[in-house]
Design a protein around this nucleic acid. Structure first.
Lengths: 205, 205, 205, 205
DNA sequence: TATGAATGAGCCTTCATTCAT
DNA sequence: AATGAATGAAGGCTCATTCAT
């Protein structure tokens, strides 16, 4: 194992990555406003200056996190549903698998709180919102498509899953702040209800 | 028209009330951290000093708002459902009425964002959360009971509406931050699905 | 002698005055950029916050100083010239009196350096310059008028003393930075030369 | 056209030169304190590192500029006056020529503002001033000599032109900050007045 | 009670300088 | 020689809070 073998670019990339990780943690812990650049730098083991060598501003860090967050997770769900679609089983079995994914996905509470923080900031800063507005749209559409695929595979003929997608996204944000039942329970119950309430496909005979 | 008819206590109560209204608006607009005591006072037409004559600290204002928030709104829904229960109609008609209430309830966006702010603050300040933890519990239970009553009145036999209550509360928070479909649509679709998915009561024949 | 008998307004006015004095000293000593708000506050015996309770920004302090500076000194010169005009003497005697005034006027080096600092800042910040642009014009015109009156009183018929006024103002700024002869000598020599070079009035007989 | 014909030393000298030019521009534009090493490097098309490879510190650059500034301009004036002295003309004609030189000399505003910056810095940093104090003395003496030569050539017998030299240097600095008449007008009027006021040489007959 | 001047800690950002590459 | 990442010390400004009026 050799040390100090990083090129300059690699080294900077590492610093950047560490800062992002730290920022995620600190933003989640203290909120966007409550998080100080100092704290972020310290959490990453650097000095304040290092942050400004890597990001234009505190808000810029949040933006980067947004992008990173956007790329996270949905890929997996997509593939998961692919597999579930192929395997001929009952919806209940599929639900269990999805639930497991959900738990894993939400295991890292940081990301969830960060998502709230992100939305809150966007809600108050149109400029910020504008800079990445389409990302949310994509997620929404993707999630709706996934649900539709899932429902169809299990014998349903849903008209449109956009409302379900919205509900799930909304719950994902809202339940992070709630202290009631297990978020996974609530979300699965919601998805299950939409499934049950959706019209059957075969009845067309 | 007579002036100066307020006693000392009344006058102070008025000041306090005005400050709370202002705080609600400013917290919702700028967030807890982003809201300055100065801004709150100004919004109410007073100076900073008035705030500190009525509240111990900035956090104390938030606390008061939490209490005020707790008392808001559910009373009405309860009575509404009472009436709907009495009138023999279809669920779809009842849904329309509820939807209308929902729209009114959420019309004041300020309360919604404030609720997020409130939960966020509680999420990070256990002390704050502890002092009012039970309030959420009450709401949750009350809402669950309301839904159960509603469902039963329209021929369903739901086991437990706690998950639905959680979903609705979660959506109420989460959809405030989302920019997808109309929140009322999403929430009504969710309630409707839970309703549709709930087992019928008549099957006892 | 009673202490603490100041009303609130008086007290604030005092603070403001002390801060301005301090700012004048610090700006002159360290330059506008080099002067920190902290240093100004400390020099006045207050905290940073006190500065911002009295001025909107660091630049605002400079602006106030500009105004104060504008009011300083010229009144006196005007009256002085009035007296000189009345007393029938030779120009050389008048020159001695003026020179004395000049020395007093420039005795406080701080004001001189501050004037340079002021002009320099205005030179680079059109906004700042615009906010008080007319002040310089007034001074210039006033000074030109004074010189004209003086020259006429001593038997000259100068066409226009604007150039002399400009020269004196320019020298006032420039000599502050120079380390050559005594500024008063240079300025008096300049005024004297303009006087000598001005056409006589009596030649009309 | 051949490239890469520069030796190491030449290349470095070129970098140094470019940096100095850039520094002159940036110091003039933003002031010594306001100029960042980064900005200077960028203006020259290099990175910060290049600056520190060529200069010990930011102040060192200013020092170098001082030296460069010292060498500029007076040579030319000296020669110009030589020629004017030889040509038998009237003072007025000579004045026109000198004025032209003056305009050219001051055309590059950068140098003028830089001179103010330089003097200001020296005024506050005795060390800096000490290291080059004599330079100003030389200039002053040289300029006085030039004026004397000029006046004598046009029939005057001035006692000492040091005060005029001081006035011109002072005006050169001060008028840069002023926004009144054309600096050249003011300076020529001053020189002209000193000329007119100087005693004639021929009266000795 | 309400005012608002003053405090002082803390925040975001800039920048001269260093140093490994 | 030149680069630019990282440092660390300021600096301008904000703001919750205190307190004399």
């Amino acid at each position: 194992m050799v040390r100090k073998r990083l090129t300059r670019d690699e080294s900077q990339a590492q610093t950047r990555q560490r800062l992002l990780e730290a920022a995620r943690a600190v933003f989640a812990r203290d909120g966007y406003r409550g998080a100080s650049v100092e704290a972020i730098a310290a959490e990453a083991g650097y000095s304040k200056g290092a942050v400004y060598s890597n990001f234009a501003s505190k808000e810029d860090i949040l933006l980067e996190l947004k992008v990173a967050y956007a790329d996270a997770g949905f890929e997996e769900l997509d593939q998961l549903v692919d597999r579930l679609t192929a395997s001929k089983g009952k919806y209940e079995d599929a639900a269990k698998v999805i639930r497991k994914w959900l738990e894993t996905f939400r295991a890292n509470t940081e990301w969830s709180v960060l998502a709230v923080e992100l939305q809150l900031h966007a809600h108050r800063n149109p400029d910020f919102a504008a800079r990445h507005g389409t990302l949310n749209e994509c997620h929404r559409a993707a999630l709706a498509a996934i649900f539709k695929r899932l429902f169809v595979a299990f014998g349903k003929m849903p008209k449109d899953c956009t409302l379900l997608a919205d509900a799930v996204i909304g719950l994902s944000l809202g339940l992070t702040l709630e202290s009631g039942s297990d978020p996974a329970d609530v979300m699965m119950a919601t998805v299950g209800s939409f499934f049950a309430a959706a019209p059957d496909a075969k009845s067309r005979t």
